[in-house]
Design a binder for these strands. Structure first.
Lengths: 254, 254
DNA sequence: TGCTGTGAATCGCTTCACAGCC
DNA sequence: GGCTGTGAAGCGATTCACAGCA
């Protein structure tokens, strides 16, 4: 137990702010779309609009990576795609295991965006013996008993937990003991992990509760400002920050 | 219930920081677990540990809601559960529609945590005519053509988008035009919405990319500190901030 | 001229440390 | 003595505004 204040300046090593790291994937997606349309260059203004952030923030973000733009012109799309991919570590392939092949786990396994960029589903693992061998998304499900062997054989360092809440902590411990150092947790539980292991979580009901809070507030205000009333087609605004991204806390730092 | 409620929330629910709102669901979950175990009171220290945050932050968070604790003692569990639920708007029922009943949409529909607290799946909507009438999680899927009618008939103000990226913006516009003012977006796209509509997004591949960044960094450092090597059973640390929660940007404000 | 890159100002959240009350 | 509630300090992220360069 870490009682002794292990004060670590959070983001040590390379000085890219967490908030910036969390936005890089957004930029990358926007850039990839531009690349597919063979657009050669973009201005910070255009790219920011496509990524749903403001341009000053984007320029500041990029300034942490280096000086990849050209004054008076903008950014070379292909070059930026490469630089960001490299920065995010997507130029290599990351084998990933998914543990817990229920509804959600199966949906994740089938999710296309997985393989698309740098990630590969190396194995599916479930505790139900009846699932063993059954293929999901073309990959045979393996039993939890073999978890350690699977992790080691495939050199997996990223694990996805999609088990029920009750099983998550134990699965987490086995993953970590077997060598996994990054975990994406879909189970509605707080995971305890040793230093050096990163955890990110995705939780539907938390997101809904946050929306409900704001929804309730809207209902309470009701017609404070003059406009409002007709949300339909009219003015549209690029949402400044959608959801859990622009976030900061991100990962538990090593 | 009701121990020290001598005070009224002097600071009416105006200025609750987004970061605090994003943590309330976490506290609520921890408190609910305590409640089920019939624990009558908790200290900020204990509750903070259960929620995976630090105790000063928790106390500060609660101070925005009012003075619900008792000095020298702690917080009354039942009373706090009620206060936080009320603050989050969970004392009322929120009908929710899910649009896009593919793998993910179906998994969401089946997700238990949905109904558990304040939310009810009012309808499932899909563009595929072949899906129409087919029950998923006991609820018959309806066709997109009837989207507007469904929203209005059920008084839905929260929508979940689980469609492919290409369809998301259009679905979003129809939801908003029909009266939805909060959207949870699972499609990997930036949604444009009018002022007054909140959007939160959940994106698997973004989370993975953020993990990959840190993973790559770890591989680069390698052997900076002496220990390492045996991540197994030893020291375990309550992750300070797991994933997209402790976040701030949250919702696009009205 | 136009757009990037960045110091400086600002904002908001977190953390500290202790006063206040049980 | 113990634990909450909170002013104040600290810190990171955002935003501003403009210098610098193609």
């Amino acid at each position: 137990m870490a009682t002794g204040r292990t004060h670590r300046p959070a983001t040590r090593s390379r000085g890219i702010p967490e908030a910036t790291v969390a936005r890089l994937p957004l930029y990358l997606r926007a850039l990839t779309a531009l690349s597919e349309r063979s657009v050669p260059t973009v201005s910070s203004e255009e790219l920011a609009a496509a990524a749903g952030v403001n341009s000053a923030k984007l320029r500041k973000d990029f300034s942490y990576l280096g000086s990849y733009g050209t004054r008076g012109v903008g950014y070379d799309v292909e070059y930026l795609v490469y630089q960001i991919s490299r920065e995010l570590g997507l130029t290599q392939d990351w084998p990933v295991v998914i543990v817990g092949i229920g509804n959600l786990g199966a949906a994740l396994a089938n999710y296309g965006g997985f393989a698309s960029r740098g990630f590969r589903v190396a194995a599916l693992i479930d505790a139900d013996p009846a699932m063993a061998g059954k293929p999901v998304a073309g990959i045979p499900v393996q039993h939890t008993d073999d978890l350690e062997k699977i992790i080691e054989d495939n050199g997996v360092s990223i694990g996805v937990i999609a088990t029920p809440a009750g099983a998550a902590q134990q699965v987490c411990e086995r993953l970590v003991a077997a060598g996994v150092t990054s975990i994406l947790n879909f189970a509605p539980t707080v995971l305890s992990v040793p230093d050096g292991v990163d955890v990110r979580k995705v939780d539907l009901s938390i997101e809904l509760q946050i929306l409900a809070f704001h929804e309730q507030r809207k209902a309470g205000e009701e017609s404070a400002s003059g406009d409002g009333a007709h949300p339909a087609a009219a003015a549209r605004k690029e949402s400044a920050d959608q959801g859990p991204d622009g976030d900061v806390p991100a990962v538990m730092p090593a």
